[in-house]
Nucleic acid binder design. Structure first.
Lengths: 172, 172, 172, 172
DNA sequence: TTTT
DNA sequence: TTTT
């Protein structure tokens, strides 16, 4: 069934990496997404809890920070657990399947971008979508796609598509 | 900022209409949205709390019921309130901006569709998207749009968006 | 970068399966998606060209037909080719990454659903997203996800995520 | 029916404003949206034709330019016309319903941002989605929404949608 | 006809 | 060239 979320907003705090017992990376964060229509005396943003896994979690922790502007694709997930008081707590959050860094290369925000090419920030800034000069399009509409390797951001920053997205034990 | 949700799923219970003090209709409901990837021993669906307002709330209450299959477009909203115990409770829910009824006309689910044309169910089933016979497209790409009136479902079931998106003559 | 499309609409004709030289399945189809706001004297729908690959293509051909109601997630793709007259032709179409069948089991449309459980139609129709009564949620928020096997529709009807989505030669 | 598109990408050229005979603003532009998976020898982006109307068209022309990074929400529209050679030409394009400027305030790209607050660029850049420390949320879940006036970007850059989505008092 |  |  269709369960699709797209958000553009900013991180409300530095992302923090955790590991499951089996060593899977997981990163929880909150996005502040500005509202188009505001309510008197209310915040102008929604504060949406999100979670990212694996490489996406690693890269977010490495290159993003409080205030970073990102685009996110994912889905809504609900779950629950029983707290210490024995009450069931229900959680609604967004599972990130793909995260796009939307800050410019020269963003100055108290952190320094990695100096080699594979940093998401740099990789993205340097993106050379191979500007198609005179015949930019695909002559053969159905040729074989290959994983994009010359773009650190896009190639590394997406959910590794199913299988081991999660782990079998709780990190918190 | 971008905050977009699209869901297709089923209602977990009959929608229930409430009224604000000022008489505005509001309807809370939960959608069960099946997961593509399931977790062992876990439910195969997410149970997403949603809220609809005004005419959408009225129509949902009138024509939908537990188990109804719908498509929904909206956005994620977060809010909070203090409960009786003085604890702050945080809520994440989807605000429906548009709801589409996806059951066929002949759906038999213990309720009877309204017998006149304005029932969403019937209106939808009878939809005659004016099959464009020989020149189905818009000759004038930018002619004046008008609110669709011959389709009870679509005309009434969305947040009442702007009328004058386009103009009545060609600019090029 | 974000390029996300969600459509709910009907097939304007039976899907037709083609094979690339390397044997990859590909299926082109058009979805009619009703408009909320119509333009006087114009069709009430958009007719959106789409393409599906691999297993999705196979299943669509097998179980869908003219008029079938589907939900689709995908992305917009542009390409071009030179026609016989030596003119460059530009194409904008939607690449389906996931297709959901939205007809009820008892749909009677001149085709017969498969008699065993793995038909997309049946699998889907039998889904009983049984509303979780008192403990519907996930006790362990981060347990290991596995491929959904008890739902023919969802498990088989999605793009096999990268790698061999396309082929290296033209099927048409 | 659901027809939803979300794009994040860059303008391939300066937007150009046109007027219909009745004076309505319309602006056509193309977005380059990078692909995650590329095809050997092919461009790494899709070049998606879009159109915006009214105030959105005005603001895009005023503040955006070739290379500007934007987020866009809209829908796919198809239309056709007969060209001079008497052939029918089919068009698939995206109608922008909301456009978000994603460049930072200090973007230097050969144009100068407006010096008063209502420039989309400035208004947006000044957004301080101040992370809600202890009580960031909405105490009253259903208070009356008003058009956001303190944010030039968001208040002016969207298709002029409905005002009365909510109500002014709590129903529960 | 394509953007960083 | 369009679906209910």
């Amino acid at each position: 069934m269709i369960n699709r979320v797209v958000l553009v907003g900013r991180l409300t705090r530095d992302p923090e990496l955790r590991k499951t017992q089996s060593g899977t990376s997981v990163c929880s964060f909150t996005m502040a997404v500005g509202r188009r229509v505001s309510t008197q005396g209310q915040p102008d943003a929604d504060f949406i809890n999100c979670v990212a896994w694996n490489k996406t979690a690693d890269l977010m922790t490495q290159y993003l920070h409080k205030g970073s502007l990102i685009g996110l694709e994912g889905r809504i997930q609900t779950r629950s657990y029983d707290n210490q008081q024995g009450q069931r707590v229900y959680i609604t959050e967004v599972v990130a399947e793909s995260v796009q860094f939307l800050e410019p290369k020269n963003a100055q925000s108290g952190y320094s971008a990695p100096s080699q090419d594979y940093g998401m920030n740099q990789g993205f800034a340097q993106n050379t979508y191979a500007a198609p000069v005179q015949n930019g399009y695909n002559q053969n509409p159905y040729s074989n796609p290959v994983q994009n390797t010359n773009n650190a951001f896009d190639s590394t920053f997406n959910a590794d598509d199913s299988l081991d997205i999660a782990s079998d034990d709780l990190p918190f």
